[in-house]
């Protein structure tokens, strides 16, 4: 099977994730969209690794997973505490940091 198709899939997933980040308000959904974008990138890395015949891309995919795991821990904690204090998980409600 032509590896380029994986790249198409990767691009499709990344786009879906990016669109979700930009248009959804629910913090959980935004968070999931970010995960989607990260994994789209992972897919692209792995595909390139396969296409070029070296392991660099796979190594980076592992790195990304580790970082994503750590990020999930921190991000979910923030979202939960935000929900507790404001009874809402909308990112637009948390807009106090402005001039």
């Amino acid at each position: 099977m032509n590896p380029v198709n994986y790249l198409y899939l990767s691009a499709l997933l990344f786009t879906i994730g990016a669109t979700g980040v930009l248009i959804r308000r629910n913090a959980i959904v935004v968070f999931m969209c970010i995960e989607l974008m990260l994994n789209a990138c992972n897919l692209a890395f792995v595909t390139f690794s396969r296409m070029h015949g070296n392991l660099d891309g796979q190594v980076i995919a592992f790195f990304t997973m580790v970082v994503a795991a750590a990020e999930v821990v921190v991000g979910l904690a923030i979202i939960v505490s935000l929900f507790r204090s404001r009874h809402s998980a909308s990112v637009d409600d948390a807009s106090l940091m402005k001039l």
């Binding site: 930009l22 248009i23 308000r25 990112v91 807009s95 940091m97 402005k98």
Partner: peptide, 17 residues
């Protein structure tokens, strides 16, 4: 320029993208 700092995470995301 200050208007860009509106506190909406999604608009920051737009500028990032």
């Amino acid at each position: 320029l200050r208007k860009l700092q509106n506190g909406y995470a999604r608009s920051y995301a737009v500028s990032m993208f």
